[in-house]
Amino acid sequence: MSKPIIVCSDLSFVYKDSKKPALKNVSFTISEGEFVGIIGPTGAGKSTLCWAINGVIPQIMQGKLKGSVEVKGKPSNKTPVDEISQIIGIVQQDAEAQLLMTDIEKEIVFPLENLSLPREEIHRRLEYVINLVNLDEERYRHPFYLSGGQKQRVAVAAALAMEPEVLILDEATSELDPVGAEEIHELAGRLKKEGKTIIMVEHNIDELAKHADRIIVMNQGEILRDGDAHEILTDVNFLQSLGIYPPQVTQTAFHLREAGWQFERLPLNLVEATQSISALRKSQ
């Protein structure tokens, strides 16, 4: 087992001016190199959890926090947010609200200037991330002229420029069209291969199934399940009870199984489904 990087123990949080806890006794450990998907209905506490991991909760968004989150051994509620940002990068849903500058290069360079890094180092990181997200040619464009997917890639690049070990994508694709969403998922897959730890809050189970190793299911501030991605994402009854739409191929196989088809395990993607269903048809 590789080294733990985020340790969350018995975390509860209530927003200021609210009575209902947004998180209730949440505990888990995430290790280096994992790709963790977090799913659950609206109001499950997914975003609250993300903010608690990088210290924005309780440092900027205030409220009552119990329990602890440790990021590489540092308590996230007491370590300055800019210090945690160098371990944990976060990209939110609203692409526009995270971009502050008038072109891509300035956006990527901005946090590095704030960290008072030397010019050569900023240059090295800029060139690396701008090529990683494939936006070299647009580097002087105003965000107004960029597509939603491009804007989110800029947000990812700006987060990665701080060289964090973990990248949190908090519903980063939910306002994008399928092409834009695909760009972000493809990028997340590449980052996983490079060894980055990825935490992805996502509604689109089909896309999440492509890269996630592990799934955490949340509902009303609690963790309902935490385990193997394939096992949880093919649990059709469980997902539907939470109002989550399982992959269509999984649902198809699920109905077939109810009709007596003997699946070894339910498929999660098109390739698996085509193979397992045709095999079963032949054997019948």
Binding site: N54, V56, Q59, I60, M61, V81, D82, S85, Q86, I90, Q92, D94, A97, Q98, L100, V109, F110, P111, L112, E113, N114, L115, S116, L117, P118, R119, I122, H123, L126, A158, M162
Partner: peptide, 26 residues
């Protein structure tokens, strides 16, 4: 107002500090 709140979070996450007098200019 919502934007303003998100901007203030973004500034913090991007390590901007009003008191930083050693900021690099790329």
């Amino acid at each position: 107002l919502r934007r303003a709140q998100r901007i203030s979070i973004a500034l913090e996450v991007k390590a901007f500090s009003v008191n930083n007098k050693n900021r690099t200019f790329f």
